[in-house]
Design a protein around this nucleic acid. Structure first.
Lengths: 124, 124
DNA sequence: TAAACATATGAACAAATATGCATATAAAAG
DNA sequence: CTTTTATATGCATATTTGTTCATATGTTTA
């Protein structure tokens, strides 16, 4: 049942499928990619990323800026740390966060340009 | 309690915060952006996107290619349709899906280049 | 027009996850 | 060395979401 094709007639299109299989990324890459996009798929984390894009901020700055609970911010910062998207340095009692590299910015701006074009299309 | 600052001393850094507020996208944009990244944050949807990147495929092709339930594929295609990332055309009983525009590809490749650099760094 | 086929949709369930409370850790100040 | 301050973490919970089953819709063919 699992191995039977769903369609009976001219579908599936075997030649198309075999070609796609050749050019598609492997399963592990796709899962890694999805995990990476998951990080960007939350507005709290996105706000944090946008905030520390230009200059480093401490946890407390982020709480104040985003109007969020300190716990919430710290949890999301841990997620960002674990995914290697941010770096941090301690200065006394405070810990300052900043972006790890500019891939983050690139992904973000690719997303933003899609969003903004969508907004344009809706105006028409 | 909500409106009190968490830190008492030299934090928060008001000048930094006010500058960040000026350059950060507004809340609605951030939510839209997060919603958009959510679409990419699932390996099934990513596989579908990669598969129809070069040429259109029907639902059944996708099921066969990805080894997934027809219902699962259709549900994810609906998500992709709703988010305007894919377009489709009917040909008899079959429905062929393809990418709506090349923003999708751009976002994907931005993500992939981050992933691949991460892999390089781990080899060192 | 009835049956077969390709795809879509609704409901239910399980798994993932974002948030907040309580508390732990770590640094500085008194 | 005790207290205060800044941040992190474990746990509980509510919400979201991906998958599947059952079934509906739309198209073709007999």
């Amino acid at each position: 049942m699992e191995n039977e094709y769903i369609c009976k007639e001219k579908c599936p299109h075997f030649n198309k499928i075999s070609e796609v299989k050749l050019t598609s990324p492997n399963d592990d890459s796709v899962i890694d990619l999805a995990d990476m996009f998951k990080i960007f798929a939350d507005s709290t984390r996105l706000k944090i990323i946008c905030a520390i894009m230009k200059e480093e901020l401490c946890v407390c700055d982020l709480c104040e800026l985003l109007g969020l609970n300190q716990t919430t911010v710290s949890h999301q910062l841990k997620t960002l740390r674990d995914s290697k998207l941010v770096k941090y340095r301690r200065d006394g009692k405070q810990i300052f966060y900043s972006l790890e590299d500019d891939h983050v910015t690139q992904i973000l701006s690719a997303g933003l340009s899609h969003i903004s074009e969508e907004a344009e299309n809706e105006q028409l």
